[in-house]
């Protein structure tokens, strides 16, 4: 059994979710490194945070709102200018096989 905090299977799972292709050597390396990082951060466990509110944002700022007013968009031509592939109207991507995606 892999006793590390982040084992080989977990690295593979995270890599898959992040669409990364890792070699076996890299997987082993990241397993060690990520485990080391977690171990280092574990030092924070010594603090008693039982009565501390979780922080939602590091700035003491809230309610940055804008009014519902239309601003110019880029337009189709500029929007598609950096696209790897387009037909002048749409971004063209490889055929999507998995119809079940989306939120």
């Amino acid at each position: 059994m892999d006793k590390k905090k982040i084992n080989i299977e977990q690295v593979k799972q995270v890599a898959k979710l992040a669409r990364l292709n890792l070699s076996e050597a890299e997987i082993a390396q990241f397993s060690t490194q990520m485990s080391d990082i977690l171990q280092y951060v574990e030092k924070l466990d010594r603090l008693d945070t039982a009565n501390i509110e979780p922080l939602a944002h590091c700035l003491p700022v809230s309610n940055c709102l804008r009014e519902d007013i239309v601003k110019p968009s880029l337009g189709t031509e500029k929007t598609l200018a950096n696209a790897p592939d387009s037909d002048g109207q749409f971004f063209i991507v490889p055929k999507i096989l998995d119809e079940a995606g989306g939120p």
Binding site: F90, V93, K95, I96
Partner: peptide, 14 residues
């Protein structure tokens, strides 16, 4: 999200 249109060999994204 945006909208995908599925073609024969590729997909279009709006």
């Amino acid at each position: 999200a945006g909208k995908n249109l599925h073609g024969e060999n590729f997909s279009q994204v709006d």
